[in-house]
């Protein structure tokens, strides 16, 4: 079964994250991803950056569903 730790390793390998938290039950996962890379990108562009990093795992369907919130460090620090 896919673990949250494995997903974190995959994301960190392709994306410079200042904060990363993945939660899930082995089938459906949620990720909070904070990266300066997202600065100036729209919501869809941010997810596309993460999707590109995880592409091969989506293709093999090892990774089926990943819900994500993508924030810049400034947005993350400013949240209420």
């Amino acid at each position: 079964m896919l673990t949250t730790e494995q997903i974190e390793v995959w994301i960190r390998a392709g994306l410079d994250c200042t904060h990363l938290a993945v939660d899930g039950d082995g089938r459906h996962f949620e990720a909070l991803i904070v990266s300066p890379v997202f600065d100036g990108l729209s919501r869809v562009q941010r997810q596309q950056r993460v999707n590109a990093v995880l592409r091969e795992h989506f293709e093999t369907e090892l990774l089926h569903a990943l819900s994500m919130r993508c924030m810049t460090p400034e947005e993350f620090n400013a949240r209420g």
């Binding site: 596309q48 590109a52 592409r55 989506f58 089926h64 569903a65």
Partner: peptide, 8 residues
Amino acid sequence: RDYADWPT
């Protein structure tokens, strides 16, 4: 996936 660059 190819058309949209969107995997899910």
